[in-house]
Design a protein around this nucleic acid. Structure first.
Lengths: 249, 249
DNA sequence: CAAAATCCCGCACAAAAACGCACAAACAGG
DNA sequence: CCTGTTTGTGCGTTTTTGTGCGGGATTTTG
């Protein structure tokens, strides 16, 4: 049995039962537990499983452990959110993606701001609802358990028929050569649609994601109009982007 | 049973009952109390539970005890939810409305149930997401701030093009003469669509709402197939409904 | 205040993981 | 074809992790 084949089988079992045991898999496919363990580690590294002692769990179980160590980047994200908010004016239609930076922005929206926010991110929606003057439109479709946002053709079709003033995109990786990239196929599809529909796209990215890339490409970096990081606009790290015609904030 | 799995189970119980006993958990999952205690300590360290002598408390409960009458109606709703859940089988497509009873049902869904839930209620969606085996489809549209559900023509159109197996309807008022009624125009539109699309409609209503009515009519009472209250099925209050051909549970 | 329940501590032990190594099959390139 | 390299796999050995148990300390309760 080929490695890929075996891993596909493991993933299938994982989706089916939401958990797998190294021991049972080993007797099941007739390979050593060591091999299973190595497979599980690979799958975990690719984000397709969660490795635990004794086997692995499906991502849908991960709700149990949200990492609390992320406090570190919180301040950076707040700074980004602050800059992003300055771009929003009363009466605008604003489309937002998922991601923690966007979520932080949602939390910091000034009370008196009157605008309409469109999103498929459950967490962001929750924040918008609590604001007194913000209208919320949710993009419906199947919800991806891993990213907690709606994905699928319905969602994409819905986005395509809008023309929002602004689009805030939480970017996982941006690089002039590789463009804007991500690791989840469904999310990529969605973000691509968001970018194409919007009059002005604003990328939100903490500095450590600048000049990095991930397996799947969304679009060229120059498709975004404005890039916001926690750094000052004249930071040398951002110079190439500014030269490429992207506004920096 | 894996450690993470067990802890997930404990957390689920905690969210459900707002408290857990080490002793009962121990006999429940068939592990030593020591192990449970260690789990609770870990969960407490992560801030997901509050360890107390004899078990643990949910974080939300730490405040003050809910007023007695709320607890009272909570128990009624739990009883309704329990009956409602018994109607759901694996693989079903289930459409649910908003309301606290439906929300309670969402919380009580058994861990191993595999089904697809469709809803426009933000609170319900949040509960569904936390279940490992449930697929979630959200109905998108504008969100009504008062009821925290999506309303509007898009939502209605979306519902119209589905044919779910079951529809659970939190009913605010039901009466044989006036039918099922509600007070919010947009919600009424939505519920009407839900009833028409579904193969089987189950009304959830606490007894005090039986034989009451509100300003706007959704449909006749007989449009629902099954009525679930916290009362036993042979309660005289429900006799007229049963005579009208509605199944009582 | 005394009995009962619960917790805490150290220990034992089995299951699982990590590590280093061996080995064979697949591959690449003269 | 031969040969050096990479890749996937299995096998001991050592470490780590998860769990249960006994007994003494502590808390709860009537």
């Amino acid at each position: 049995m080929l490695k890929k084949e075996r891993q596909a089988y493991i993933l299938h079992q994982l989706n089916l039962h939401n958990k797998v045991l190294s021991s049972s898999l080993s007797t099941d496919i007739n390979v050593s537990e060591d091999t299973i363990r190595r497979d599980l580690m690979e799958l975990a590294a690719e984000g397709k499983a969660i490795k635990v002692h004794g086997g692995a769990l499906s991502h849908s179980f991960s709700k149990v452990d949200l990492p609390a160590n992320e406090v570190y980047s919180l301040n950076q994200k707040r700074r980004i959110a602050q800059k992003a908010i300055s771009l929003i004016s009363n009466g605008m239609f604003v489309l937002t993606s998922g991601g923690t930076t966007v979520l932080e922005m949602a939390r910091m929206l000034p009370h008196q701001l009157k605008a309409t926010f469109i999103s498929g991110s459950i967490a962001a929606i929750l924040e918008y609802i609590n604001h007194p003057n913000i209208e919320v439109i949710i993009i419906g479709d199947k919800i991806s358990k891993s990213s907690k946002i709606t994905v699928g053709s319905e969602a994409i079709a819905k986005i395509r028929q809008m023309k929002p003033d602004l689009c805030f995109l939480g970017t996982n990786a941006i690089d002039l050569k590789h463009g804007i990239t991500d690791s989840d196929w469904e999310v990529v599809q969605l973000k691509r649609a968001m970018i194409e529909s919007s009059q002005r796209v604003i990328g939100l990215s903490i500095a450590e994601k600048i000049n990095t890339f991930q397996p799947i490409r969304i679009c060229e970096a120059t498709k975004i109009d404005t890039l916001i990081t926690e750094l000052p606009a004249d930071d040398p790290l951002l110079k190439p982007y500014s030269d490429a015609g992207i506004k920096i904030l």
